[in-house]
Design a protein around this nucleic acid. Structure first.
Lengths: 216, 216
DNA sequence: AGGCTTGCACGTACGGCGTACGTGCGTCAA
DNA sequence: TTGACGCACGTACGCCGTACGTGCAAGCCT
C-alpha cells in the first residue's frame, strides 16, 4: 500500500495536530517526522527550516477562519462579526493561537482579514487614516484578548484558575485585589470579549464626524 | 579581588542584559553563565530551572515600571497615566516585552499594577464587576499594542518596515490594502497608542450610569 | 582545637534538539 | 539506454537543559 507522499501541507497539518495535542513545546522536527512515520531529514525536502514550518502553521490556522460578511448589514454588525470570526481561532486552535499572533506573516493569509476590515470601515465612512487607526486598535484588543483567553498572558489574577485563597494576597497591601478576588479569579471569556467589542464599536461610532459622510 | 558572589538577582540581571543585547533566542543557561564568568551549574544553586529564571526576568522588568499616581487627579488622567506607565516596558526593555506579557506571574510584581488600576476605577465610581471588566479590556489592548510595537505580532502590513512595493500585493484582490499601503506600512506608535487609550477612556466614561455614583 | 554540617562553585555526562551533508533509489526525458 | 533529477533517509556536529557527584571553605557544636 503506497502511503500518501510527503508534502508541505501534510507536514503543517501534522504540526498543528501535535501542537493542539501536546502544546507548542512538544514540537520538534524529530517528533513531527515520527508522527508522520518518515525520517527527520525528509521534512527538509518540503520545508526550509523549523521557523518556516511554524510560519506555515500560523498561516494555515489564520486562513481557516471563516468570514461570513454580509455587505448589506450595518457596519457595526459587520465589525462585530469580523471580530468574533477572528476570535474563533482561540476555539478552533487554542494552543496554536500564540503562534498566530506572535509571527510576522507576509503572505495573503494575513492580508485577507485586513482587506475585509478596511473595506467595512471605509464603507462606514471612515477616511483612510481613521480606518487604519481603528483597525490597529481592534487588532491590539483582539490579540490581547486571545492571549488571555488561551492562558498564555498574565491574568493578573491572584491565584491560577481557582478561587482565590485569601492567604495568597496580603489584604493590607492589595485591598482592592483582595476584595474583588472572586471576580478576578473567574472569567467569562465570551462575555468579556463581547463587552470590549461593544465598547470599542460604541467608541468609534462617535468619532469626530468631520471625516465621516454617513453611517453606512 | 573577591568577585561579587553569585545571586539570583545578578543572574536575572545578566539574563535581561543578554536579552536586550541579542534577543530572547540568545538566552541559554550556558551563555548566561559565560557572561557572568561562572560555571553553568552554579546557576542552579540560585535558580531552580530556566523557566523559573525567565519568570524572574519578567517579574523584574514588570516591577521596574514607575507608577506616579496622583490620587487627586481626575480618574481619566490617572487611567491615562497608568496605561502609559505600562507601555514604558516596551521602551525600557523592548526585547523582554514578549516575556512579560506571555508568562503567568503569580507574584506581587504582577499584582501591584492591578491594585492601582482597580483602585482608580473604583474611585471613578465603577462597581466591582465593571472595574474588573474595564481593567481586563485595558490590559488586552495594552498587551496587544505592546506586542505590535516591539514587532513580534503581525503588523498585517503588506511589507515589513518599508514602503510597500506595489508588486507585493495584488490590487484586484486587495484594493483597500493596496490603496492604504502607505498608511499601513508606516506607524506612529506613540500616536496610535494614545489614540486607542483616549477612545477607551471615552467609551468607559459613558458606561451606563446606573452603577456609577459620580465621576471621581 | 577538632570534627561535622552546610552551602556553593564546578565538571562530567546524558538525552534531545536543529540541520549540513552525503547516499541511494525511483522515475522520467532524451 | 543513459543521464539527470527528485526525494527519502542515515550519520554526524554543535548546541541545549539539567541530573548527579565532587571538593572546598565557612560556620557551628562540643
Amino acid at each position: 500500500m503506497p502511503t500518501e507522499p510527503l508534502s508541505r501541507t501534510r507536514i503543517v497539518a501534522a504540526a498543528i495536530d501535535l501542537i493542539e495535542r501536546e502544546g507548542a513545546d512538544a514540537v520538534s522536527m524529530r517528533r513531527i517526522a515520527a508522527d508522520l512515520g518518515v525520517g527527520v531529514m525528509s521534512l527538509y525536502n518540503h520545508v526550509p527550516n523549523k521557523d518556516a514550518l511554524l510560519n506555515g502553521v500560523a498561516e494555515a490556522v489564520l486562513s481557516q477562519i471563516e468570514f461570513t460578511d454580509d455587505p448589506d448589514a450595518h457596519w457595526t454588525d459587520r465589525v462585530r462579526m469580523q471580530a468574533r470570526a477572528f476570535r474563533q481561532i482561540a476555539h478552533g486552535h487554542p494552543r496554536s493561537t500564540m503562534l498566530v499572533v506572535s509571527r510576522q506573516l507576509h503572505s495573503n493569509a494575513g492580508l485577507l482579514p485586513v482587506e475585509r476590515a478596511l473595506a467595512t470601515l471605509r464603507s462606514a465612512g471612515f477616511d483612510g487614516v481613521d480606518a487604519v487607526r481603528v483597525l490597529r486598535m481592534f487588532i491590539a484588543y483582539i490579540v490581547g484578548s486571545l492571549l488571555r483567553e488561551v492562558g498564555v498572558t498574565p491574568t493578573f489574577a491572584p491565584s491560577h484558575r481557582q478561587m482565590v485563597n485569601p492567604d495568597d494576597v496580603d489584604p493590607t497591601l492589595f485591598p482592592e485585589v483582595n476584595g474583588l478576588a472572586p471576580l478576578l479569579s473567574s472569567c467569562d471569556h465570551d462575555a468579556d470579549f463581547d463587552f470590549g467589542v461593544e465598547l470599542l464599536i460604541q467608541a468609534i461610532a462617535v468619532l469626530p464626524k468631520r471625516k465621516r459622510e454617513g453611517t453606512r
